[in-house]
Amino acid sequence: MSALPRIWTWPLVLALLTMIGLLSALLGEGGVWWALSWLALAAPLLVIAVCLLKVGQSS
């Protein structure tokens, strides 16, 4: 994969998930919309955790 997609795919996906997460709890009426919001907004935290775990294993 060339450099740009390689470094930008994940950040763009996470930005999109963040926006979905921020809006779903705001516009939706609780219930499933809240759950969607939590999952989508937890994605960046999850990706950070996975990256750091990988780093910890490789060192």
Partner: peptide, 27 residues
Amino acid sequence: FGGVRQQRGRRTRWLDLHNLLGVTTLA
């Protein structure tokens, strides 16, 4: 993306971490 280079010294490690944390939480 997500790489944190370990063998290039403390400064590089923190630079990679700064980039990783900054770009994932950008939005």
